[in-house]
Amino acid sequence: MMTPMDTSGPSAAEIELRGRFVAGLRGDASEYRRFLDGLTGFLRAYLRRRLPRAQDDVEDILQETLLAVHNARHTYREDQPLTAWVHAIARYKLMDFFRAHARREALHDPLEEDANIFVAPDTEPANARRDVGRLLETLPDRHRLPIEMVKLQGLSVAEAAQRSGMSESAVKVGVHRGLKALAASLRGST
């Protein structure tokens, strides 16, 4: 199905978000944060449209998708539309949710047709049912500590390495693995 957006090249949202995301890939944390903020609005609206009968689950799936987007950052190819990449991830997470909840009827809605993720943002958060912070606490120390020190307490990698007695590269790998473990435990809790 063609929409006006398809014929007029990439949408303004695609151009803006893509620019921020690519800057984030190069290490610009503040642009990356703006990308995540913008993406969150679009994703929330998208999920609310896709899940008319499961509004309570929207915020949980949204958080899971954000974490998936973050963990899969290195799989984006700069010559591909960001919309396609994000949509494939969001769709994958939605399918996962449908499978877990055996909402077979929802699978009959062709998800492909709604590929325009960046249409209208929804910046009104709902309450998540699941607490990511609590799940983080249940992770083993080797996954939890690097995330807590670097991401929550705001220590630099060097400081965290000093305090934990790990090497700097072990801290960096620890954060990365920890976020993957967090994503896995989110998956297990649905």
């Binding site: 969150t40 290195h74 912070g133 705001g154």
Partner: peptide, 23 residues
């Protein structure tokens, strides 16, 4: 954890991606 807090967590200390890693 609220979605906004999760975003802060993800955005802090997000190092540059090594693009040659998949290859």
């Amino acid at each position: 954890m609220k979605t906004d807090d999760l975003i802060s967590l993800l955005a802090s200390e997000a190092p540059a991606i090594d693009r040659r890693q998949p290859t």
